[in-house]
Design a protein around this nucleic acid. Structure first.
Length: 111
DNA sequence: CGACTGACGCCGA
DNA sequence: CTCGGCGCCAGTC
């Protein structure tokens, strides 16, 4: 299994109403310190996978796309639609950050 | 082959 | 608070 695929699988586990950081996704995929790989993998992900890409933000809680860009707007709207509070492009990670159960990960992922 | 490029993250100035 | 520098690595050229 390639690294991109590992990342895509972890992204599918992020529940509605939560957000996760690029670095967190990489860590959970067994690729510590490779946040940039997550951004790359998301950019290359086939549309057909229907990944909840908008639930991935920077570790600071900020939407990664340039403020005002089409993608940033779409991401913001979709998050709000799921109940996530988004002030401008800032999200409160303490409240909406995904904190997965270790048992869930062990069950869902089989690397 | 090397150089450059990201939807990043952390640390120091 | 903002920058800048560096580590990161799979593609792309």
């Amino acid at each position: 299994m390639g690294n991109f695929e590992k990342i895509w699988r972890v992204v599918t586990l992020v529940p509605s109403g939560c957000v996760a950081s690029y670095g967190q996704i990489a860590d959970l995929a067994g690729l510590p310190g490779r946040a940039r790989l997550t951004s790359k993998a998301l950019g290359k992900a086939p549309e057909s996978l229907g990944l909840p890409w908008y639930r991935i933000v920077r570790s600071t809680g900020q939407i990664a796309f340039p403020a005002g860009s089409e993608l940033a707007q779409t991401q913001r709207v979709r998050l709000i639609a799921e109940g996530v509070h988004v002030n401008g492009r800032q999200i409160c990670m303490q409240r909406f950050g995904w904190k997965p159960e270790i048992s869930t990960l062990l069950y869902e992922l089989e690397f």
